[in-house]
Amino acid sequence: MQEHHYFVCGYTVSEASRLRAAAEEIEVYESIDLMLDRLEKQKIIWLTLPAGEVTENIVQELMNQLSSDDIIIEAGNSYYKDSVRRAKAAKEKGIHYIDCGTSGGQSGARTGPCLLVGGDQVVCQELEPFFKSIAYENGNLYCGNSGSGHYVKTVHNAIEYGMMEAIGEGFHLLEASDYPFDLAAIANVFNNGSVIRSWLIQLAHDALVEDSNLEQIRGIVGSTPDAKWAVQEAMDKGISVPIIANSLFIRNDSQMEDIFSIKVVAALRNGFGGHGVVKK
């Protein structure tokens, strides 16, 4: 945002994060009060926090301090029904609550993320130049009313679960074969002209170059609520989503078993999102 000539200041409880921000000449404060005092009207708050209680608490604190026509852009992975509820509560105070599903991982934060925006159409149209300027080229979309941005992001993450599981299973089959395959070389050739070329395949290649048989990590992968929400939504609508559901269940199984396909999934998550891996 700062690189696109927007004034940015922030709040975090992490002293290390404040020091890193200061090195980039970004003002970051240790309290929400100080941050809000630094902002002029109209205040626009970009909120990126883990879904659940921490987001709920910060949103409530912001809504108690912001004024009419201020804007909260909630860019985490919240449950879409929570976003609908928060938008309704914010509207009662004259505050605009925009849900913004954000994808692209750590690199996207620097080179341009994919933004999936939901909320009041007039407000989102006013924010469109901002979203377009910080997003990847053609990487922002107004999805609809409140909750729609986080709904689309939930489905995005559920698809991601299935794709990573398929890549993991494929490389598990290659690793278990009777041929002495160079898995990194296969990942590389897959990413040059093949139907399955993708960033995830590139991340698989990078991980296998660093550790050819992923011997340094354990096949343990955590799960976030996104796939669970997607499976529940599918059940509510009577839609079959076996690949998404099984990819979630396999992650649960990974807490007990150490298998190669899950090592690949763990390496992919670490590659795009910086999610931790369990080292041997």
Rank of each mutant, 00 (worst) to 15 (best):
E210H: 14
S240F: 09
G276S: 14
L116K: 05
F131N: 07
K228D: 09
L203I: 15
R20S: 12
Q255H: 15
F171Q: 02
G104A: 06
D226E: 15
Q125K: 13
A16D: 12
T48C: 14
V155R: 03
H275M: 04
S212L: 11
L62R: 03
A267F: 04
N246R: 13
E175T: 04
N157M: 03
I44S: 03
D33Y: 10
R110F: 08
Q121E: 15
K280G: 12
G105C: 00
V195T: 12
F171E: 00
V277Q: 11
S198G: 09
Y29Q: 08
E169F: 06
T154A: 11
L173A: 14
I95G: 04
F7G: 12
V278C: 05
Q2D: 08
Y97E: 07
S14A: 03
G105M: 04
K280E: 14
C114K: 11
A187K: 03
D258Y: 02
S177H: 06
A204W: 02
K43M: 05
E233H: 10
D99K: 03
V152T: 08
E25I: 08
V241P: 03
G105N: 01
G94S: 09
S177E: 02
K237T: 09
I167S: 02
S83Q: 13
G222S: 11
C143D: 02
K237C: 14
A21F: 01
D206N: 15
T224R: 14
M164E: 08
D99W: 06
H96T: 08
P242K: 07
I98T: 00
L115F: 05
F260G: 01
D33T: 12
R269K: 11
K81C: 06
G10Y: 00
A187W: 05
V122H: 13
L248K: 02
L36G: 01
Q121R: 15
E137G: 09
N64V: 08
G162N: 05
V117G: 06
D206T: 11
L203T: 08
K237V: 06
I98W: 00
I243S: 09
N252I: 15
T102R: 01
E126W: 05
I73E: 00
D69C: 06
N213M: 14
L214G: 00
A23C: 01
N140V: 11
V123M: 12
V8Y: 01
I44E: 05
S107N: 13
D258M: 01
I45D: 00
N145Q: 13
A230E: 01
A21R: 00
A207T: 04
K43L: 08
E24H: 13
I73R: 02
Q255P: 03
I159N: 05
E210Y: 12
P180L: 07
E15I: 10
I134A: 05
V189P: 05
E15N: 10
